[in-house]
Design a protein around this nucleic acid. Structure first.
Length: 810
RNA sequence: GCGGAUGUGGUGAAAUUGGUAGACACAGCAGACUUAAAAUCUGCUGGCUCGCAAGGGCCGUGCCGGUUCGAUUCCGGCCUUCCGCACCA
């Protein structure tokens, strides 16, 4: 009987058709089984899935299938992050409306999804451009408005002229637009809607302790960095020469305040004259033009003087281009002796430098003619009654002094700023507000939601929102006074959409609420979230914020959305991240067409451990295709005649089988190093080949059956085909996961290395568990060892049972 | 500058309580089968070196040092590449 060759195309087509109705992966909300919510980040429907997506989904799918087999009720949904700029750009380029372009892309990508047989419950699909979804964005916005968490203000905002829209701080990378990496953002003053994420800065930071262990340290570090909490003191300096309010500065080093030789305010600051002042304006413009990076320090004397409330010293007020209005109070005290930037500034402008802290151990008196700033903590000196205190103690006492004397207070400053969500674009959630000349910004009544995007629009990609040109959208009556009013034409940042989408999966068709709270209580938090690290500070901070807001509104109970986060590595192509705009994508359909869907996903898992970046190269994928077809051929050929051997082959294969089972089970339970799981399966197959002729029919079929089950999370098509070939029915991934037997997995021989002075010299084969003393005796009697020792007596013999014997001689 | 990673054969990688470095693959070489090729199967494959051979020796996990009988693994100090933040007061 000739071997069957594996026709992956026929097999994959057959099962894809069988599974097309999706009923296989439907998840019940009520189940006696324990719940497990596993989720991969939803994609933007850009046109086609590429191999980077496949890697992401292959990890989640292996886990989902494994958890089914482990007896969990698994929730594994998928959706579309469907609003966004590319749809508008495509509309301009192809004259296709964004809605249609998006719909087409979703249809196409969904086809690829089903080709790969990822185990999603499509009944719960969420598409963020669906009015039934975005109406709840609007609803949440109104709730935030009620609570003062959404507000509108004129502000300097980041503007990308290519996107023709405002960007959030999180979307500015190295001073350039995140979508146009060489295009510097401009600063523009516009009236914008903001969400008060800063209200939650402390909670976002504190609750990270709930995430430790479940989230990668790297992501937590990035978030901590981004939130940028810094503890210090605000101090008021009275202006001595004019009737002006005091200058409030923020410092983390109040212990150095006696060393302040001037104040420096941002050019936007009142004392610098603000935007009205020509010199200040020039400085602001120059900085905007230069971008964010480090620039030559510039400044000038404002003509004002201020009084140091501690030393009563009168010091000049300067303005400086390196002082940022947006951080702290927009004003600093310059302590050139103990701060590098202040040092540089004061040297340049020949301002005095005065040391007021000396090193704890250095024992140096005040260094005269300092050549650099001493920025560490130390012992305070030349500082009135605080001289002699440590920096830490001085900070405490001086802050208390400021509070008692009404000239300052302890303060905490965050780098995090409020989240600007207004976008002057069409393809996003309309902000549900109406501007009335009498009543101001009036919220759209809840009953009128959703505020739908009009579909007949002209997209130009220039300047203001295209919605401005749709009179039937813009011209409305004020809900309060009934007078003529204008609808807000900005739309929401798309990161709003992805801030809560994973809640919607729990109740995707609810038309009277964003979701049923009871369902959230059942499914949340997400047990395992999987996605790219590039979202560490955008999506993953916003969605934590959103969760806390929803909790405070009272519709959910969990503090955090995600218990465990896994950040898989990127798929790189020619040294660059794979993306449509770089033109280096490897389309998933091409790989599936050429090698098969199972092969594509198995290779994505085999190429490297999942957290590592991989540079995609086709070399190697043949090996995986070869492996799968070897499995198929071996498993489907006629079973051997029951040749009653001595049973040693049976024992060997059974041992290997349970070792493989143990290895793969442990990989799922720990680091998900599926590359080694797959390697273990390859070894098992190699052993099957080796022992083939001497195996009993029973050992053979048992091994093949279990191998099929274990293959199911990684290569569902092949596993299902083999499962049926073996005479079973039903979906293989709903079978229980086979448990390994520690006794059967135990080796029957231990290879023990004999070392002399730590170098391998010989080997012993012994029974596992052989006593130390016996191993020592055997090693010392070894012919090679006796030859090497030349009659010397060992100084010491180290024995590690089942591993090695190290003989130490001098 | 601060924070986080990273470094092992020609290549992807493995080795998790310190105990045989390079599992499993890719590529390469040799052989079997074939009229031939593909496919498939078998063997070899870190470097240097000794030997006709069987079989040895030395070196080797970014660099330098330390701890240890023994270090890819632990400690100290450097270096590389990558990522995040950054005149943040």
């Amino acid at each position: 009987m000739p071997e069957k060759t594996y026709d992956f195309k026929a097999v994959e087509l057959k099962w894809a058709a069988e599974w097309a109705d999706g009923s296989l992966y439907r998840t019940e909300d009520n189940s006696a089984k324990p719940k497990y919510y596993v989720l991969e980040m939803l994609p933007y429907p850009s046109g086609a899935l590429h191999i980077g997506h496949i890697r992401n989904y292959a990890i989640g799918d292996a886990l989902a299938r494994h958890q089914w087999m482990r007896g969990f009720n698994v929730l594994h949904p998928m959706g579309w992050d469907a609003f966004g700029l590319p749809a508008e750009n495509a509309a301009i380029a192809n004259k296709t409306p964004p809605a249609e372009w998006t719909r087409m892309n979703i249809a196409r990508m969904k086809k690829t999804h089903s080709r790969f047989a990822f185990s999603y419950d499509w009944e719960r699909e969420v598409t963020t451009c669906d009015p039934e979804y975005y109406r709840w964005n609007q609803w949440f916005f109104l709730k935030m408005l009620e609570r003062g968490l959404a507000y509108r203000k004129k502000a300097l905002v980041n503007w990308c002229n290519l996107c023709a829209t405002v960007l959030a701080n999180e979307q500015v990378v190295d001073g350039c637009c995140w979508r146009h990496e060489t295009n510097p953002v401009e600063q523009r003053e516009l009236a914008q809607w903001f969400l008060k994420i800063t209200n939650y800065a402390d909670q976002l930071l504190d609750d990270m302790k709930l995430l430790e262990g479940g989230w990668p340290d790297r992501v937590l570090a990035m978030q901590r960095n981004w939130i940028g909490r810094s503890e210090g003191t605000e101090v008021d300096f009275q202006v001595s020469d004019a009737d002006l309010p005091p200058v409030r500065i923020f410092t983390t080093r109040i212990d150095t305040i006696y060393g302040a030789t001037c104040l420096i305010v941002a050019p936007e600051h009142l004392l610098a004259g603000g935007i009205a002042d020509e010199r200040a304006k020039a400085m602001i413009d120059a900085r905007a033009a230069q971008g964010m990076g480090e620039v030559e320090k510039e400044g000038y004397f404002t003509g004002h003087y201020a009084i140091n409330p501690f030393s009563k010293e009168r010091i000049p007020v300067w303005t400086g281009n390196f002082v940022l209005m947006g951080y702290g109070t927009g004003a600093i005290m310059a302590v050139p002796g103990h701060d590098e930037r202040d040092f540089e500034f004061c040297v340049k402008y020949e301002l005095p430098i005065r040391p007021v802290v000396r090193p704890v151990d250095g024992g140096l008196a005040s260094p005269v003619g300092m050549t650099q700033a001493f920025c560490e903590y130390g012992i305070v000196e030349n500082s009135g009654k605080w001289s002699g205190e440590t920096s830490a103690e001085a900070r405490r006492q001086m802050t208390r002094f400021a509070e008692e004397h009404g000239c300052g207070k302890g303060a905490i400053t965050f780098r995090l700023k409020d989240w600007g969500i207004s976008r002057q674009r069409y393809w996003g959630t309309p902000i549900p507000v109406i501007h009335c000349p009498l009543d101001g910004a009036v919220p759209v009544p809840e009953a009128d939601l959703p505020v739908r995007l009009p579909d007949k629009i002209q997209i130009t990609g220039q300047g203001q929102s295209p919605l401005e040109n749709v009179p039937e959208f813009v011209n409305v009556v004020c809900p309060k006074c009934g007078g003529a009013a204008r609808r807000e034409t900005d739309t929401m940042d798309t990161f709003v959409d992805s801030s809560w989408y994973f809640y919607r999966y729990c109740d995707a068709k609810n038309s009277s609420a964003p979701f049923d709270s009871a369902k959230i209580a059942h499914w949340f938090p997400i047990d395992q979230y999987i996605g790219g690290v590039e979202h560490a500070i955008l999506h993953l901070i916003y969605s934590r914020f959103w969760t806390k807001v929803m909790r405070d509104i009272g519709i959910i109970a969990n503090d955090e959305p995600v218990r465990k986060l896994f950040t898989q590595g990127m798929v790189i192509r020619n040294g660059e991240k794979m993306s449509k705009s770089r033109g280096n994508v490897v389309p998933a359909d091409d790989v599936a067409e050429q090698h098969g869907a199972d092969t594509a996903r198995l290779f994505a898992l085999f190429a490297a451990p999942p957290e590592k970046d991989v540079d995609w190269r086709d070399s190697g994928i043949e090996g995986i295709a070869r492996f799968l077809s070897r499995v198929y051929r071996f498993a489907t050929r006629n079973l051997p005649m029951a040749t009653p051997g001595d049973g040693s082959a049976d024992a060997a294969i059974l041992r290997k089988l349970h070792q493989t089972l143990r290895k793969i089970t442990e990989d799922f339970d720990s680091r998900w190093h599926f590359n080694t799981s797959i390697a273990a399966l390859m070894e098992l197959l190699n052993d099957l080949h080796t022992h083939e002729a001497n195996l009993s029919a029973e050992a053979m079929s048992r091994t093949i059956e279990i191998m099929t089950l274990v293959l199911a999370p990684f290569a569902p098509y092949l596993a299902q085909e083999l499962w049926v070939e073996q005479g079973h029915t039903g979906p293989v991934f709903k079978e229980p996961w086979p448990m390994y037997d520690e006794d059967l997995a135990r080796d029957h021989v231990s290879e023990v290395v004999i070392q002399v002075n730590g170098k391998n010299r010989s080997k012993l084969n012994v029974k596992p568990g052989t006593e130390r003393s016996e191993l020592e005796q055997l090693a010392l009697k070894d012919q090679r060892i006796i030859g090497l020792m030349e009659g010397k007596t060992p100084v010491r013999v180290v024995v590690v049972p089942d591993k090695l014997v190290n003989i130490v001689v001098r």
